[in-house]
């Protein structure tokens, strides 16, 4: 579904990612683990064409997307849920969803705003309120819903649990499982190992821009050495 091979990414002059490769297959949830600044968000932004990538290849559905602008990549069906949520605070919940709307795509479900309100009942009650008045948890729901409105074939979910109360994180877990149940693969970036453990099939560990470990989630949970060395548990 998504295949990244040997990418190098830069912020200005700073070399952030070195030779990063990873794959995401249909129907699976893959987590990218690593501490702050390790390159998790940069990896996701590189896939979305939001960071300068100088080498390597990023193939989605067998087609090269490296070098395309973010909007073209999103149009191909890659749904991006940013860290820090980035909802439009002055637009109503309904308008936020409208912004994410894309034409129906072959092979993926065609989501409507009503589907979103079924999936996230909190948002239904708030549909005419400005996004900025929502709580942090509701905003996280809204940003996921907004991305689903684009009928994505694959979702990049960047640090969805950051700064959220445990009770809200548990709700996000349910949502991620629901997305998986719909057959949409998810590339998740996380710091919370509990969260990752509850939803992921496979894991990559990234540190200072290098992929240091790759394996199933279960293997990682049993590999104390990797967990201590790269995740500082």
């Amino acid at each position: 579904m998504l295949e990244i091979r040997g990418i190098h990414s830069y912020y200005g002059q700073a070399h952030i990612l070195t030779d990063v490769s990873l794959t995401l297959s249909k129907g699976e949830i893959v987590v990218l683990l690593g501490r702050n600044g390790a390159g998790k968000s940069t990896t996701i932004k590189s896939i979305m064409g939001m960071v300068r990538v100088t080498e390597g290849s990023i193939a989605y559905d067998g087609e090269e997307v490296l070098g395309e602008p973010a909007n073209r990549i999103a149009r191909r069906g890659l749904g991006y849920v940013p860290e820090e949520r980035r909802i439009f605070t002055r637009l109503s919940v309904q308008e936020n969803l409208d912004c994410g709307r894309q034409p129906a795509r072959e092979g993926t479900r065609n989501w409507t705003a009503d589907d979103m309100f079924d999936l996230f009942p909190n948002l239904a009650e708030a549909r005419h309120r400005p996004g900025g008045t929502l709580s942090g948890g509701e905003q996280q729901m809204l940003t996921i819903a907004r991305t689903l409105m684009g009928n994505p074939g694959c979702i990049l979910l960047d640090e969805p649990s950051e700064g959220l109360a445990p009770v809200v994180v548990e709700q996000i877990i349910k949502v991620v499982k629901e997305i998986k149940a719909q057959g949409i693969p998810v590339l998740l970036s996380e710091q919370n190992l509990y969260f990752a453990g509850l939803v992921s099939d496979r894991a990559y560990v990234i540190e200072t821009g290098h992929i240091r470990y790759e394996g199933s989630m279960r293997e990682l949970e049993e590999n104390d050495e990797v967990r201590q060395q790269y995740l500082a548990v």
């Binding site: 973010a70 999103a74 940013p82 980035r86 439009f88 002055r90 637009l91 912004c99 684009g150």
Partner: peptide, 13 residues
Amino acid sequence: AATEDREMVGALG
């Protein structure tokens, strides 16, 4: 929307 966050608008297609 772009007035608030133009990059995000791009990332939505």
